[in-house]
Simulated assay, not measured.
Amino acid sequence: MSDFNTTNFTNPSSFILLGIPGLEAAHIWLSIPFCIMYAIVVLGNFTLLFIVKKESSLHVPVYYFLCMLAVTDLVLSTSILPKMLSIFWFNSREIDFNACLTQMFFLHSFSMIESGILVAMALDRYVAICHPLRHSTILTNPVVGKMSLIVALRSGVLIFPGLLLARQWPYCRTNIIPHTYCEHMAMVKLACADIRVSSYYGLFVVFFVTCLDVVFISISYTQILRAVFRLPTKDARCKTFGTCGSHLGAILAFYIPCVLSLLMHRFGHSVALHFHVLLSNMYALFPPMLNPIIYGVRTREIRDRLLRLFTQKGN
């Protein structure tokens, strides 16, 4: 590995991913839980997509958003897991420069898309509870399509400047990235230049997107709670708010690891590097794994159709 750790090159053709620094001897064992998590991600999200596709009664906005969330989770986890497992199993650490930028794009852009989808789902819950009679006329298929396009465009517009900055920096210190994937700041820190523009822009994007999306979600749920508390009986209040349970679970599964990872990167300088890397991987894998479980358990329509599917196969 020392051959790669040189200071006599500029703009290397490839980088070397270390995996989880300090835990190299445990890579094989660490691959087991990561592999199990990825299997749950693939099986759970493809099952959700299959059920929604097969059941015409589920062709409504809330399940369209759920399908978008499933596709986003599949892309997000697949952008890092295969390479990570190749490092753990085959010691395949090298990654092409352009492949590194591509991985970075998919990871960060689809994380942003997932946040946007959670905002769209919050809007769906707001309309369904606060304006139930107008739900079908407000959230029509063209409106859902436009919302999805806005979420995707926002991600591309905000991510591309960071990628262009990362691409133009001269990398003449080392090409070793102490991570399992090409994370933006882990890569940019290798540049032998003043990278404050990249650092500040990355912070701006994270805080702008996270804060803006959390504000929109909070406003939606404030209005939802006001509508729920106006209902006459406790049972009606519980039943109505219960329809938000799956979405709230998805919000917590996404934003809690996101905030912990952000705080760790910015303020946890005394924390061991391997803990940083493990937390970053959990941020990319935990929501995609939990989302199909949350919606499968909490959503009666999906649970009933899943049970019907297995019952039919059993017969």
Rank of each mutant, 00 (worst) to 15 (best):
125 R>L: 02
99 A>L: 15
135 H>V: 09
125 R>A: 01
128 A>G: 01
104 M>W: 10
101 L>F: 14
132 P>S: 00
124 D>E: 15
129 I>E: 00
111 S>I: 14
107 L>I: 13
134 R>A: 03
143 V>I: 02
110 F>T: 03
134 R>M: 09
143 V>L: 04
119 V>E: 01
109 S>H: 09
126 Y>K: 14
119 V>T: 08
105 F>G: 00
112 M>R: 11
109 S>L: 11
127 V>A: 00
132 P>M: 09
129 I>D: 01
113 I>H: 07
141 N>V: 06
141 N>P: 07
100 C>E: 00
104 M>Q: 13
123 L>P: 02
137 T>E: 12
138 I>S: 02
139 L>I: 03
139 L>P: 00
103 Q>L: 12
123 L>T: 13
142 P>R: 07
104 M>A: 05
109 S>A: 09
98 N>P: 01
139 L>R: 05
113 I>S: 02
131 H>D: 03
116 G>C: 04
129 I>V: 09
117 I>Y: 13
123 L>C: 05
112 M>S: 13
99 A>S: 14
120 A>C: 15
115 S>A: 09
114 E>D: 01
116 G>S: 00
115 S>G: 02
102 T>W: 15
136 S>H: 15
138 I>N: 00
133 L>W: 09
106 F>M: 15
124 D>H: 13
120 A>D: 04
133 L>K: 12
132 P>Y: 14
134 R>K: 15
106 F>I: 12
119 V>M: 04
103 Q>E: 11
135 H>M: 08
134 R>V: 00
137 T>V: 06
128 A>T: 13
124 D>K: 09
136 S>T: 12
143 V>R: 02
113 I>V: 07
108 H>W: 14
126 Y>M: 05
112 M>N: 07
99 A>K: 13
114 E>M: 10
135 H>D: 11
140 T>D: 04
128 A>E: 10
107 L>Q: 11
115 S>E: 10
135 H>N: 10
101 L>E: 05
97 F>E: 09
123 L>I: 05
103 Q>I: 06
122 A>S: 14
142 P>E: 07
105 F>Y: 15
100 C>I: 02
105 F>W: 15
105 F>V: 05
101 L>A: 08
103 Q>R: 11
133 L>E: 11
133 L>C: 04
136 S>C: 11
137 T>R: 15
118 L>C: 05
143 V>G: 00
140 T>I: 07
128 A>W: 11
